[in-house]
Every structure is written in structure tokens, then in C-alpha cells.
């Protein structure tokens, strides 16, 4: 099972690219032209991410270098250790449903501090990649069509996030812990 999952991780992207190439040649598409055209959007995306990342990573660095974050983590660690939840990723877990760019900043900071292949770095990567920003999605979609009574949408969305986060902790601990 574990071997199979890591095999998927390595094979998935190259195989997917191969499928795209084959589909493009069957349809006789100008693949390279399309690639270049789509790629231009990537530059825009990265540049527009820049101010978000500078703002968030700087604020988190202030919190960490002052010693406040470690003090906070030390304070809550005993309670979280009890259920096997690593205290270092708690701030990320809390912010993930609220702001995508803030979470991206935190993930980066955790990866930079603990290393991308460490347990914390791996867990942060999985948490960042496996769910979307509930509050953002809710605001955009319901805002766009003028929904005022959202009923149980927020509770259900946040509960699903909680389960995804717990699943991430459990599976990463099992596979990489």
C-alpha cells in the first residue's frame, strides 16, 4: 500500500504529461504554441502571489524569531501530544480554511524552518495541498449570486476541513513518521 502510493507519486505527473502529448497529437493541435500561451499566465500568477507571500512570511517570521511562536507551541504541545497532533502545524491548520495565501505563507515558513522532507515539512505540504480555502470559496460563490441565508454551509465546510486535517496528520504519521 505504502509502496504503491509512493509509486503513484512518482509516476503520475510524467504519465499525465504523456497523455496530454498523445491527446494533442491525435487532435493535431499546435501543442507548443498552446503551451507557451498558457505558460504566460503562470508568470502573472507567480507575480501576483509575491506581495501576499512577502506580507505573510514576514509576519510569521517576526512571530517566530521573537520566541512567541515557540512559547505558544510549548504551551499547547502537551495537550496536542496526547492525541498525537504535532503542535508546530496547529497555526497552519487553524488558518487553512480562512486564507489560502496566509496558509501558503505558513507552509513555506514551516518547510523553510524544518526542511521539506522532515515530518513537519511533509505534513505541512499535504495540509496545504489537500483542501481549499472554505471561507474564500463561500464568499466568492455566495457573494456572486447574492445568497444571504447560507444555512449549514459554513459548519459543514469547516467540519469537512477538520476531518481532512486529521486525516493528513494520521496518514503522514503512518507513512513518514
Amino acid at each position: 500500500m505504502m509502496g504503491f502510493i509512493s509509486l503513484i507519486s512518482i509516476w503520475m505527473i510524467p504519465c499525465f504529461i504523456l497523455i496530454i502529448m498523445i491527446a494533442a497529437s491525435i487532435r493535431k493541435l499546435p501543442a507548443y504554441d498552446l503551451f507557451v500561451e498558457g505558460g504566460k499566465e503562470g508568470i502573472k500568477t507567480a507575480v501576483s502571489l509575491l506581495p501576499f507571500l512577502v506580507g505573510m512570511i514576514t509576519a510569521i517570521s517576526i512571530l517566530r524569531s521573537s520566541g512567541a511562536l515557540d512559547a505558544f507551541v510549548g504551551l499547547i504541545a502537551p495537550a496536542l501530544d496526547f492525541i498525537g497532533f504535532p503542535a508546530e502545524v496547529l497555526p497552519l491548520a487553524l488558518i487553512r480554511p480562512i486564507s489560502g495565501t496566509a496558509a501558503l505563507g505558513m507552509t513555506t515558513e514551516l518547510i523553510a524552518t524544518y526542511g521539506p522532507d522532515s515530518f513537519i515539512g511533509t505534513l505541512a505540504s499535504v495540509m496545504q495541498g489537500s483542501t481549499d480555502t472554505t471561507l474564500y470559496v463561500l464568499t466568492i460563490y455566495f457573494g456572486a449570486i447574492g445568497i444571504k441565508k447560507i444555512r449549514y454551509a459554513l459548519q459543514a465546510g469547516l467540519l469537512a476541513d477538520l476531518i481532512a486535517i486529521l486525516a493528513a496528520v494520521f496518514l503522514v504519521t503512518m507513512m513518514f513518521g
Binding site: S6, I8, S9, M12, D117, T122, V126, G129, A167, A168
Partner: peptide
């Protein structure tokens, strides 16, 4: 890309 499989599972 080591995290792709687990991320998909989660």
C-alpha cells in the same frame, strides 16, 4: 513530488 500520493488520498 513525494507528497502527491498522500495528498490525493487525504
Amino acid at each position: 513530488t513525494q507528497i502527491v500520493g498522500v495528498t490525493l488520498l487525504v
